[in-house]
Simulated assay, not measured.
Amino acid sequence: MIAADRGAELALTVADQGIGIPETDLPSIFERFRRAANAGAVAGSGLGLHMVRQIVTMHRGAIEVASRPGEGTRVTVTLPAIAAARAD
């Protein structure tokens, strides 16, 4: 069980060393069915980041993406921590 003070945040960062996302695509990367221009033959529907942002927003959190072509992508999700209730 994880307990946190009210107002604290929990951050989860996922990073890869993949093809990265071009800077020109970053502003629209959360749009439905949006794929980066360099995605080419890489499989995907363009729904992943859109769905993640919707879920994170519903939980009053934030999502941030940093990426460079040829270097990879880093996605950070920040959520408000909820103090765990202890049942004795």
Rank of each mutant, 00 (worst) to 15 (best):
M1I: 11
A4P: 01
A4L: 12
A4H: 10
D5P: 06
D5E: 13
R6N: 12
R6M: 07
R6F: 10
G7P: 10
G7L: 09
A8N: 09
E9W: 04
A11D: 02
T13W: 00
A15I: 02
A15Y: 00
Q17D: 14
I19E: 07
I19R: 12
G20K: 08
I21V: 15
P22K: 09
T24L: 08
T24N: 11
T24Q: 13
T24A: 15
T24K: 13
D25G: 10
D25V: 05
D25E: 10
L26T: 09
P27D: 08
P27N: 10
P27A: 11
S28Y: 09
I29C: 05
F30Y: 14
R32G: 00
R32P: 00
A37M: 07
A37Y: 00
A37G: 15
N38T: 15
N38Q: 14
A39C: 11
A39I: 09
G40Q: 13
G40N: 13
A41L: 09
V42M: 10
A43I: 07
A43E: 12
S45E: 09
S45V: 01
S45T: 13
S45W: 00
G46Y: 05
L47M: 11
L47S: 05
G48H: 02
G48R: 08
L49H: 04
V52Y: 01
R53V: 01
R53K: 15
Q54T: 06
T57P: 01
T57Y: 02
T57Q: 12
M58T: 06
H59E: 02
R60P: 00
G61W: 02
G61P: 09
G61S: 06
A62W: 00
I63C: 05
I63F: 02
E64H: 11
V65Q: 07
A66Y: 00
R68F: 00
P69C: 10
T73C: 07
R74G: 04
V75T: 14
T76P: 03
T76C: 04
V77E: 00
V77T: 05
T78I: 09
T78A: 11
A81L: 04
A81I: 03
I82F: 04
I82Q: 15
A84W: 09
